[in-house]
Amino acid sequence: MAVCTMREALNQALSEEMERDERVFLMGEEVAEYQGAYKVSSGLLQKFGPKRVVDTPISESGFAGLGVGAAMMGLRPVVEFMTWSFSMVAYDQIVNNAGAIRYMSGGQYSIPIVFRGSSGAGLQVGATHSHTPENWYANVPALTVITPGFPDDAKGLLKSAIRSNNPVCFIENEKLYGFKDEVPDGEWIVPIGQARIRREGNDVTLIANSASTHVALGAAGKLAANGISAEVIDLRTIKPLDLPTILASVAKTNRVVIVEENKPFAGWGAQVAYEIQHRSFDHLDAPIERVTGLDVPQPYARVLEQAVMPSEERVIAAAEKSLA
């Protein structure tokens, strides 16, 4: 067990899977000679050569679609978007091709592809570079959506994603690349579709993912000082959703606050809230609260952006409202 950053954990996963399977290759803007815009692919070109670590032109639609075509032929591409905000340019390829070819062909093709890259707001890069698109892709039936919040999950889930025979959107968060934590050495697999309870509690359940889990944990610490015991669930995988873990927690605490960085309308939290009230109505003692990114394009100025982001203060207020 060694302590390493999120970017190092992702790098280990890529390196180990490329070592294990020659069909795995990494492709994207600045992944090779530049060593990765966020250094996730650092050293991979030197280790695996230009056939398997491929710099692309700034051409998201082209190289995302190229990846899908290669996956149809049995290769296992890992396609990096410098940020998921740029994946909008490739939306047709991800939704209509990666997301539908298996089904449209009556099951003839598997599409073993991973789209991955950074996402998220909070670093003052403005509206075009700050998207958290997990809800957009979770709306596509055949796509798996993974959003790790810790280095050990990042490594174990990326290895699972690469081994999956289905198209996976692996959505990292830019704010977390430097976050350090313990990561098991060597073969370490985290199954897709399982949430993780990051903090146990009895009074209220905070359901979060990715960077929002850190906001929820911060809030849980402060709530504890006020005598409120909050349980924090990190979904890790948005789709498929781990309902058993969620519902077991709701049965225990009877109160729920959902913390999500994506925008409120049809954000993933809306679906989670629906599932809870539909399946565990009798367990709820209060309306489900949601703390989301606010419904505005992401602003630049720090004071404005901070107002838009989910914050510990907003989570605490929501938890207290739920308990009132």
Partner: peptide, 17 residues
Amino acid sequence: DIFAPEDQMPEFRPPIG
């Protein structure tokens, strides 16, 4: 034909919605 059956995914995919 939605998902590859030979996948390592848990068999239980909650029927969302």
